[in-house]
Design a protein around this nucleic acid. Structure first.
Lengths: 154, 154
DNA sequence: GATAAAACCTATCAAAATAGTAGGGATAGA
DNA sequence: TCTATCCCTACTATTTTGATAGGTTTTATC
């Protein structure tokens, strides 16, 4: 899991929490999450193109969730940010990528692992995460230092 | 999953299948699996240092499994070859890496994901894989082209 | 003992992926 | 018109990956 997935997830959660007061701007997110606004732009652009976010341009503009948090899975978010969640490429499709998928038990192994790992990510919705987040008194606080780099910076 | 995990797994399965006739040399494996002998050396060295393989030096030497296949899990193999199976680093330990693990729900999310994914890998043993392999008529054949690169070469 | 087959070790290197930076549009509220 | 914001593209530095190369040590066999 690279910074794309980690920062991007923080961004979308941050957005979900703050979007009641209207679209959330990149500047706000970058400031709250202590991330580079320029870099964040790339990640949020992916989320928008992946149809998870809508945007409003101009002053007072920003981003907001395109769908209900309960209909957005963690798997969807991560796949958009990081690409397919799969151990190896040849397990991705039934196409003519692998020489003989059905004759290859290691291939089938990768396919099964891939399916199971995706299930783990897909059974969690953004709604679940938000619910979990709200059980904390200080939601902002629990965002401050999610990553090793942040701790080192500090 | 990089080539380390993929090639390394092929190597250890190949070894397990052929070790009845004595230690299996790198040359044999490299030839059967169509891999670079030099590169394979690195991977097998990791497996040996990880105490999954023993070696015999000199002519007729080679490698063999240090333990019973049923006691070696896929998770163990992959962790040795690829490093910890975890979405993000801060979910690895209870140590003072993250600022406040217990106050951070995203941190807990990573921990839970990490645990569940490791379970998927750990519930499969090398013994299981071998059993699966032997259900194929042509075990050698199903090894030939496991990876995208191999198919492209072909 | 000499030869050779093998494990073992270290350094180096090219290519790819990652993590960002920079700078300039386009849009729209004030 | 001004400016805050999204939007887009190009560039770059660093790190990781995937090797390659060349040597040393061990040991069975002749």
């Amino acid at each position: 899991m690279s910074t794309r997935g980690r920062y991007g997830l923080r961004a979308i959660i941050d957005m979900a929490i703050h979007q009641e007061q209207g679209p959330v701007s990149l500047r706000e997110i970058a400031s709250r999450q202590n991330l580079s606004e320029n870099y964040l732009e790339h990640l949020v652009a992916s989320l928008r193109r992946g149809n998870l976010l809508n945007s409003v341009r101009g002053p007072m503009g920003g981003y907001y969730l395109a769908r209900n948090p309960d209909s957005i899975t963690l798997g969807e978010i991560i796949r958009i940010l990081e690409g397919p969640i799969a151990p190896v490429e040849c397990s991705l499709s039934q196409e003519e990528k692998c020489a003989s998928p059905e004759d290859c038990f290691v291939h089938r192994l990768w396919q099964n692992l891939s399916r199971e790992v995706n299930e783990i990510f897909d059974k969690r919705t953004l709604g679940d995460l938000l619910e979990d987040a709200h059980s904390y008194k200080n939601i902002e606080g629990c965002f401050k230092f999610l990553d090793k780099e942040d701790v080192e910076k500090k």
